[in-house]
Design a protein around this nucleic acid. Structure first.
Lengths: 186, 186
DNA sequence: CATTTCGGTCTACGTGTGTTGACTGAAATC
DNA sequence: GATTTCAGTCAACACACGTAGACCGAAATG
């Protein structure tokens, strides 16, 4: 058995290996998308074996589901003028965050149907929450634009790496917050 | 030879077949991304043959390049307060546009390295143009956020199909234009 | 009409993929 | 200490893919 450090117990060893595989999967799925990432590649990156990856995670599909599962955003609630602040806080987290799992989900969304469905579901749920708390007839529309702005900032920063968006989260927030406020208040 | 209509001349027939293939390629690349789209699938959708696709376009790579080539945006220039209007006009075009080639490019950007480079180059060029015409120290940053907003709206509408973003281009513009103005003027 | 050109079809090859199953040896259990 | 369990390795399978080349028949050319 591979012995990479002092840990001896079998359960611990296994947990450690699974974690290494999962981390490698997150990274590779995030860098190259679903299709271009191979089980063999993940195994190698994790210092493991393709067969083992299969045995532990069942299939590439299931591994991907675990690697790219989206941590749900916190709830949005409160008076209309508080909403913008909460949105900004959520955005700040997304901008600062080391783009591992979320990035994998995002990138895969564009080539992998199930991932796309999951991302859409997550975003729609979040967005509907926002729309419910917003005033005005066009609350849904405005919450859609809010979602688009956040989506654009996250994708622009982490995936497309647009010029200028590599600024500090604070600088970005300074620009984005007024926009969010404006959209939230209608 | 397949004879689908009255056209008889060989050159016309060929042009027609190439066009059918290209149209099918655009549609499929746009729907499923680069990897999940197969030469065989394109050929079948075009009522043609995989070998023929290869002979006409050389390789999947080259076919993709032709199918997903990005039409460059018009130039951006003028006084700072005109910029927002021009940006809005460009955005309007992107929102209304039947998302065939552009969608293929967008979607592929996330799974296909070369496409990603091309898209990024196009966006960066456009963005730099904008930044040059904008006042203020943080022109690059603001133009980045402008790009993110547009990117988010286009992706949110055509790719993710966010709720609310299926509104008429006019309604979306009514919300987006003030944001663009605000970003342009600093 | 004879010959050449060429659009279209079919078959096959090589490669890389996800996935499976047999095997090995050390840890766990008694 | 004997037996069982199980993490890890290796080799192989079936399949789908991009691609190449042989072949056919009708249009073009003289």
């Amino acid at each position: 058995m591979r012995r990479l450090n002092g840990v001896t117990t079998r359960a611990a060893q296994r947990r450690q290996t699974e974690e290494r595989i999962l981390a490698a999967a997150r990274r590779l799925f995030g860098e190259h998308g679903y299709e271009r990432t191979t089980i063999r590649g993940i195994a190698e990156a994790a210092g493991s074996d393709a067969g083992l990856v299969m045995r532990y995670f069942g299939s590439k599909e299931k591994l991907f589901a675990q690697a790219a599962s989206i941590p749900p955003d916190g709830p949005i609630e409160g008076a209309p003028d508080e909403i913008a602040g909460q949105l900004a806080a959520g955005l700040a987290a997304k901008l600062a965050e080391e783009p591992a799992a979320a990035l994998a989900a995002m990138r895969a969304m564009f080539s992998h149907p199930e991932a796309a469905a999951e991302v859409r579901a997550a975003m729609t749920a979040q967005q509907r929450q926002v729309a419910d708390q917003l005033p005005g007839e066009d609350a849904v529309l405005r919450s859609g634009v809010i979602g688009a702005l956040i989506l654009g900032l996250v994708i622009g920063r982490h995936l497309v790496k647009l010029e200028g968006l590599d600024a500090t989260p604070e600088a970005l927030l300074e620009l984005a917050t007024p926009l969010l406020t404006q959209l939230a208040e209608g």
